[in-house]
Computed example of a mutant assay.
Amino acid sequence: MEYTQLGRSGLKVSRLCLGTMNFGPQTQETDSHAIMDSAHQSGINYFDTANVYGGEHHRGWTEEIIGRWFAQGGNRREHTVLATKLYGTMTHLPNESKLSALNIRRALDASLKRLQTDYIDVYQFHHVDRNTPWEEVWQAVEVAVQQGKILYSGSSNFAGWHIAHAQEAAARRHYNGLISEQSIYNLLTRNVELEVIPAAQHYGLGLIPWSPLHGGLLGGVMKKERGGVRRTEGRAQETLKNHRDQIQQYEDFCDELGQEPGNVALAWLLHQPAVTAPIVGPRTQEQLDAAITALDVRLEDDALNRLDDIFPGHRSAPEDYAW
């Protein structure tokens, strides 16, 4: 396993991040624990979760599963760089969501209890809160850092100017601010190349892509559909309809490379200079094993250029759309 710094921080994380959103709703607890053990054995030390994971009727379920895994001992917590998130609505009460100082305090304590730990390595804002000033957010985070409950802060789903706003507010307080940004980023969805990636690089944030296979559409969906293994539904079905020719070209090219499509999609992200670690969210042990093999895939410049031809990206703004 390779390790790298998370943004400009001194924190070292694995080049793959284990996403846990399926733990509970899709993957039963015993299997979830086995997947986390296997991730550690493979050298993955970076785990991502969120307080809302578990489904509408059991928010917090995923954190509880992780907490019971930590409670088994064996240095599980000590060997994990733990990232969780807050923002989403946890109850019907008016102050149980977003980024007010009150919710940061309450949500953090609740996550610590569910996770059965006394600190979070990277506490992340799941979404920007347009109604709470950054001075309030950073004051609450600084208190939590002083209490030893948080070590670092990160963002998720931020626009480039949100990152800039957050970092400038932190700088005025002589505070470190954000060290990471989670965004959807894959061969099909490359909008972050316009402004989010330039902002992250300028301010020293590590980029953590989520949905690296775009809901499975970059994981060999055409081949699986022909074999009757998988049938897309909902938004994935509409996306496949709109991009069928591209995805077919992509799968044909993966065959030329002699690689599985999912491995190529992950390897492409790992070749992007701004990317720290894509989030892989396995439902099964087999899916985790498949993702780990992507670490050994090396893409030459010709292959990277061909992928750009199939899935055109963006130059940074404003050159992408202006002179």
Rank of each mutant, 00 (worst) to 15 (best):
A34M: 10
R231E: 13
A267F: 06
L257A: 12
T284N: 11
A290V: 00
V81G: 01
S180M: 01
A317L: 08
D255P: 06
R231Y: 07
G234L: 12
P282N: 08
Q26W: 08
R172P: 00
G204R: 09
V196G: 09
V297Y: 04
R231C: 05
E256I: 11
T132S: 02
N176H: 14
E238T: 06
K113M: 11
K224Y: 05
H165D: 15
V229Y: 13
D302N: 08
L99T: 06
Q146L: 12
I66L: 14
K12R: 15
L217H: 14
Q259F: 09
Y3F: 14
D109P: 01
P261G: 06
E2R: 13
T276V: 11
V143A: 13
G10Y: 04
S155H: 08
A107M: 05
M1V: 15
E64C: 09
L6V: 11
A107R: 01
Q237K: 14
A170E: 04
R114C: 04
L217D: 11
S211M: 10
I310W: 05
R172V: 04
I44A: 03
A159R: 09
D37M: 03
A34S: 12
A169K: 09
K98V: 09
A291P: 02
A169C: 07
L112W: 08
R283M: 14
L299A: 03
N75G: 11
A267H: 10
D109C: 00
T30G: 00
R306D: 08
P282W: 03
Y152E: 04
G55A: 02
Y185K: 00
Q26L: 08
G258I: 07
G55K: 07
Y250G: 04
K241N: 07
V141W: 10
Q287S: 04
T91H: 07
R244Q: 15
I44Y: 03
H40V: 00
E238A: 04
Q285I: 11
R298P: 00
H243M: 14
A277Y: 10
V81F: 02
R106I: 13
Y250Q: 04
I163M: 03
G215H: 03
L257N: 12
H57S: 12
N157P: 05
A144Q: 13
Y152V: 05
V141C: 12
P273V: 08
D320W: 04
L16C: 04
I184H: 09
